[in-house]
Design a protein around this nucleic acid. Structure first.
Lengths: 134, 134
DNA sequence: TCCATATTTGGAATTATTACAAACCAGAAG
DNA sequence: CTTCTGGTTTGTAATAATTCCAAATATGGA
């Protein structure tokens, strides 16, 4: 918790109660929860929480670079607490998203392609997860 | 046109007027247009076209595997006529999506990872495109 | 031509997200 | 301790994208 506060202060984000709650939730649930999941989970302990705050806060964190965002699902926003480079797997059956250790891929190091400046590289795998296969 | 009809028939999709129109549009506009762009462009020549038909048709094409779909943008559906493996670049300024020739990446050949069965591999670059840089 | 079935329509419902003004709160200044 | 100020949060309304579904229409074969 101290650690998370520090993380916010470093980026000049005032560590308000709600912000810390949300960041802590992301830290403890590395499943790339949806805004709704985060909201529903937290509103139980913090009944005053508004969904707009969750949106605002995640947007702020994302802009300041303390979390990343995924577009793997295509239907709703997903965020990523982890900052080490890694990739993602989406199960098309159950919808779960798994972190995948970084595959060593030359493309990940490109800083430009055809004159376009590259800021982010996303590698997404989609298929059927282990549990859904059984 | 003959070619596109054949493409549909091969996959046992009845080549109706609207379906051919939509497929032809995708073929001629390799910019991954949104549903709305497709609809607005086509409704001019085919005033009876409904947006639901565009959704239905793209979903059908995608299910039958004659087009692919992208989740690069995160805010709306995008489809991909091209069937050769390639990757995509999204400009975060103008929103345009560019096709990028396949980067030779070992990860693209994986058929499984950690026990999950991989059906699709998506490699997305995000940043600022050539024109927006100037 | 008629029938059965596939296709398309159009409007309503749903879901995710954003906009925005009002309310709230915490710390600085007096 | 009170007031002021600006950042934070709320809640509702608006928007945007998508899906649902029943009715209408078109199509190809008998």
């Amino acid at each position: 918790m101290e650690l998370l506060q520090k993380k916010l202060k470093e980026k000049r984000i005032r560590p308000s109660f709600h912000r810390i709650k949300i960041l802590k939730y992301l830290d403890r649930h590395r499943t790339h929860p949806t805004v709704d999941e985060i909201y529903e989970a937290l509103v139980k302990e913090v009944p005053s929480l508004s969904k707009t705050t969750v949106y605002n806060t995640l947007e702020l964190f994302s802009k300041k670079g303390i979390i990343g965002n995924l577009t793997i699902s295509g239907s709703e926003k997903r965020y990523d607490f982890e900052n080490k480079a890694h990739s993602h797997f989406l199960c098309k059956k159950c919808g779960k998203i798994f972190d995948i250790d970084k595959v060593d891929c030359p493309c990940e190091n490109n800083r430009a392609v055809r004159g376009h400046k590259i800021d982010e590289v996303h590698l997404y795998f989609k298929g059927v997860c282990k549990s859904c296969l059984m």
